[in-house]
Design a binder for these strands. Sequence first.
DNA 1: TCTCTTTTTTGATCTGCGTCAATGTTGGAT
DNA 2: ATCCAACATTGACGCAGATCAAAAAAGAGA
Lengths: 266, 266
Amino acid sequence: MSAAQPHKVVSLAEFKAACQSCSLFQLCLPMGIADNELALLDKIIRRRRPLKRGEHLYQQGHSFQSLYAVRSGSIKTYATTEDGREQVTGFHLPGELLGLDAICTERHGCAAVALETCTVCELPYDQVDRLNEFLPGLQQQLVRMMSREILGGQALLALLGKRSAEERLAAYLLNLSGRFQRRGLSGTEFIMSMSRTDIGNYMGLAVETVSRMFTRFQEMGILSVRRKHVVVHQPERLRAIACQSGGCTVLGRAGAALPQTETKNG
Amino acid sequence: MSAAQPHKVVSLAEFKAACQSCSLFQLCLPMGIADNELALLDKIIRRRRPLKRGEHLYQQGHSFQSLYAVRSGSIKTYATTEDGREQVTGFHLPGELLGLDAICTERHGCAAVALETCTVCELPYDQVDRLNEFLPGLQQQLVRMMSREILGGQALLALLGKRSAEERLAAYLLNLSGRFQRRGLSGTEFIMSMSRTDIGNYMGLAVETVSRMFTRFQEMGILSVRRKHVVVHQPERLRAIACQSGGCTVLGRAGAALPQTETKNG
DNA sequence: TCTCTTTTTTGATCTGCGTCAATGTTGGAT
DNA sequence: ATCCAACATTGACGCAGATCAAAAAAGAGA
């Protein structure tokens, strides 16, 4: 992937292939896009050079210009409070959008940093209107994705409001698992690119608690963790734990706690 | 308010006055709407008969048809888990939208019930596209409002993740206060239409804790509560409590924990 | 008005998880 | 290979807030 020239003209097949693995995919292709429109889209969506671990895609407070979609790798978003502590607001895997929360204020309320080497596509927001003329339904699709984000947020709220540490971790793992699976990757064996500290921060738990829970799950034979490498042996038990107090409805069908990725275009 | 004939033709002035106090306001009027368009809008937006306390606007699982805006009164949204317990997902005051989370699944993930006598406006979602042709920017405005909802959700996450009961309640009260104030009502004296149980459920606290915190704030001289009637004597101290661990940045400028209502149309 | 139900408040006790502290592990830099 | 800094694990302890229990207050209906 030599991602040097951002506006390089690609063949249609090549482009479609790229978009399959890319993530703005959902914003465009499902709508039966014509070939000439695809060329237009290609002009507008920018491929950025890959981000290295620790590099920022944008900083908190920066003016909002574009939406981003993760193409590969993973990105953490976090907000820093005035006393210097950070609140992790999300982890973004391939196929997921970043920046939706900045549209209303036209300023990024959180920073986005690569957890590993990443590639992203960029959609300048001021082009959305223009693009919508050629791709009717684009904006509608955007609304749908935002709706999903809101729904996922509610699920997470329920989780943080009244679930034990064990339930939170179980739900978190199932969520990751589901997101990987939906991307065609293994849902039972994957790499968690985020640190324990980040997980704890995100889930409202102390690092130590996160660590203890991983140990407990391991002792129970539910999974194996070695550093960032996870193998889930008994997803059903994980699900049982996550749902034991009936959180599954709220959390969406699969007990996942965050933005789902399926699209229902009934 | 005889809300009998939904499609009654109203004079422009009358309509504008209605919309000032109504809430789909934000979806239409700020965009410099022409008079003939206004008439169209009036045809599409339905005024429903008032809801009495305890009546449902929609039930969990119902198919999604419309967005609703609260015109007066207040509405609670909640999801019921399979074991029959409920998770409150939000309180909606005049000027706020309901149903945004249902767009993606085309099914309501939570129920909406009136906490007191309410009036609402209804915008059939399948009309949004059509309406967008006449009111360019409508959909864009919708996107902006959803973005705000996402942002607010993140703030709430931060709150539930790592704030003490005292901080949560302080933030909750400030949030309510701000929302009333922004609607031109008093931010220091208002009626909390929701029960202590609902507040606790929403904020991830036991009812008893909520009650104790109100008592504590009262003993500190910060406010007076009598049943649902609240008078805030020292908002600064409330703010100091809500922000003491630096949550203000995340929570939006005023320490409010939920969807803000200001619009930035830079 | 009085009764019955629901909501709120207050007190007492118990526990999950945060905090502190110490040790082990890993990967990157030299 | 060796050092170092960041990350992860494990143990001990204390406290905020959940839970249990019961009384008090406020509506709702007759």
